[in-house]
């Protein structure tokens, strides 16, 4: 009876996972297709004409043409990939520097106004990006950094979600450890760097990873802030792809998602712990 139930559960979950695996397989297969096969199968989805879709989970014969074409002969893609790196990684560093200490204070100190302050971060976090974007736009305009990489880096640093996630994670750090460190004469910075950071590490990693995924995927911000198309990030390569480059679209889709996916597979454990901490009410 137990065994039967377990089999039923496994089958259900397997079916759910197929919904994830199949689309990814379709994408992977399309990356390996030579140009003529791509046009034969996917003319309509690529926006090149009207023809029956002939979906496949394997290419008729594998070819690296479209990957090579994208990586070796598409300087535009390379430039946009590099733009993404410039816009995302400094922003993550900034987030780390600003959010981690703030979260430590919210999690481990008692001070008047703390509840309201944390509530304010939660409200900021829930507001749709488009609402805070109006404020951001006014500041960027005043600072004269619209149409530069800074326009994407600066507002991102002050995002409220990382503060929330890190706070929840720091709250799981045992109070006794912190107290013991103080008794041993540890200073505030020592307690933060040697107890908070190592023990709250899953939350820090999670917050940065979620920000990374979100910003690597940025769409609204660059479209609104960057009139100069040479600054556009890689997330806008596919939406804006030229007709004669359509054959590399799937390769671009794969390369674009490679970095976030590999990061996730590498830091999976931290991510699960970090997200889990933010779901526990303490």
């Amino acid at each position: 009876m137990m065994r039967k139930r377990r089999t039923a559960i496994t089958i259900t979950l397997f079916a759910a996972c197929l919904l994830v695996w199949l689309p990814l397989l379709v994408m992977a297969a399309a990356v390996l297709m030579p140009e003529d096969e791509l046009y034969w199968r996917y003319l309509s989805p690529l926006g090149l004409g009207q023809d029956r879709v002939r979906a496949a989970l394997l290419p008729s014969y594998p070819s690296l043409d479209s990957l090579l074409e994208l990586l070796v002969r598409s300087p535009g893609f390379f430039k946009m990939f590099w733009n993404s790196c410039i816009q995302v990684f400094p922003m993550l560093l900034g987030q780390l520097a600003a959010a981690a200490p703030a979260a430590w204070a919210l999690a481990k100190f008692q001070f008047p106004g703390k509840r309201q302050l944390f509530g304010a971060y939660v409200v900021l976090m829930v507001l749709p990006f488009q609402v805070t974007q109006v404020s951001d736009y006014l500041v960027l305009d005043r600072l004269g950094i619209l149409d530069s990489h800074l326009a994407l880096i600066m507002p991102g640093i002050w995002s409220a979600l990382p503060v929330y996630i890190m706070t929840k994670s720091f709250e799981t750090v045992p109070e006794a450890l912190v107290e013991a460190a103080y008794l041993d004469g540890a200073g505030e910075l020592y307690a933060f760097f040697h107890i908070g950071v190592p023990l709250g590490y899953p939350g820090i990693a999670t917050a940065l990873m979620l920000s990374f995924v979100d910003r690597w995927n940025a769409l609204e911000q660059p479209v609104t802030y960057l009139k100069d198309r040479t600054l556009w990030p890689v997330s806008l390569y596919l939406p804006d792809i030229a007709r004669d480059k359509a054959s590399v679209a799937f390769a671009a889709a794969l390369i674009t998602c490679l970095l976030p996916v590999l990061t996730y597979l590498n830091c999976q454990e931290e991510l699960e712990q970090g997200v889990a901490a933010s779901g526990v009410k303490q």
Partner: peptide
């Protein structure tokens, strides 16, 4: 089941 969260929207649109 967590994987889709990490995949940029632009990558999936073609599929």
């Amino acid at each position: 089941l967590v994987l889709p969260m990490t995949i940029p929207a632009a990558s999936m649109v073609l599929v």
